[in-house]
Design a protein around this nucleic acid. Structure first.
Lengths: 179, 179
DNA sequence: CAAGAACTATCTACTGATAGGTAGCTTAAC
DNA sequence: GTTAAGCTACCTATCAGTAGATAGTTCTTG
């Protein structure tokens, strides 16, 4: 893993724990074993790093999901696949969704970072709309509404489960969601 | 309004825009017209201020809601009352829920602040459980599950509506929630 | 009722730590 | 001999927090 990739991984953990202001170039540099001035070589400013982070997170998220139509064709419920990706973030990583946290702070985010955070939600809503459409093709006008409900409940319950340190809350909230 | 109250109000806006790290004693002091050292007179440390902020927010939130049983007796749907309080925060204040934001950052919060943030969610889930119980008394085992779903979807959609700067997303997500 | 003690709310001046960012040098690889 | 990737050394700004002084108010008590 290159230093640049190491920096992004270290920053991801920090941001997913406490938001955009929760990491500094000095901390990141120490963690990956370089000097803070060298971080500016890879990312000219902090907002460049933040934007790259949100962009990479979105790409990896959607890549991990796959295509809703193909999932359905393979006999899987794409909504369950989606839920499982959030469950993994909560249970395995024990961290918030990166863009969930950034979104909550959207009022105070640099433009570059905000743009990438918006793209995360737009692309996720599009994915979920397609997922709901393939499950219930006769109900197209409701697909987007259900997409919004699905991502809202997942971001929300993630935040609450983490705060109360109780994964059972997550499980209760998602009951009946994949229908 | 006392300086102490002014400080809490100023801090609330900052935190609801960008989280716990988004305010400083200096900024707050300047805004209310005193020196930063004087802020320490009212709140010995930053975490004391943060805890007081979350506590006051919770108290005011529950006070604004009223009692679910009384609301129901007065012919109102308490879930609709609850939704309206979130709608007001989003549309009028144009800000996130304070404890929603703090909860997202819970991993990096000082203990004092975390305790108050947890209390917000515990008390809100209790309120919503009672609200769902009074609406559907024969369905008690589902009341807590519905309470979790309700607050999760509201915190989640608030975050997403704010990020995408689109209040219509909020309205779509809450359709059918008050039944 | 008046003297003095204690308290409230503020100030100035400071500390040590940390922040993001910049200029210019070095080193190694191609 | 250019470039990538790092370095040292520095800058200015800001951070939370502390010490000690002060003016005005309130409480206590002789």
């Amino acid at each position: 893993m290159s230093k640049k990739e190491e920096l992004l991984k270290a920053a991801e953990l920090k941001v997913r724990s406490g938001g955009y202001n929760n990491f500094s170039f000095r901390e990141l540099a120490t963690e990956v074993g370089i000097k803070s001035a060298s971080v500016h070589y890879h990312f000219p400013t902090k907002s460049d790093l933040g934007a790259a982070l949100a962009h990479q997170y979105t790409e990896e998220f959607l890549k991990a999901l796959g295509d809703p139509d193909e999932l359905y064709a393979a006999g899987k419920n794409p909504i369950d696949v989606y839920i499982n990706l959030f469950r993994k973030a909560l249970v395995k990583d024990k961290k918030m969704c990166l863009c969930g946290l950034l979104g909550a702070e959207s009022d105070s985010l640099p433009d570059k970072v905000l743009i990438e955070t918006k793209l995360f939600f737009e692309r996720n809503i599009a994915w979920l709309t397609q997922a709901h459409t393939v499950i219930a093709p006769d109900n197209k006008e409701a697909a987007k509404r259900n997409a919004i409900k699905t991502i809202a409940i997942l971001e929300g319950v993630m935040l609450i489960s983490k705060t109360l340190d109780d994964n059972q809350i997550f499980e209760e909230a998602i009951l009946g969601l994949g229908n």
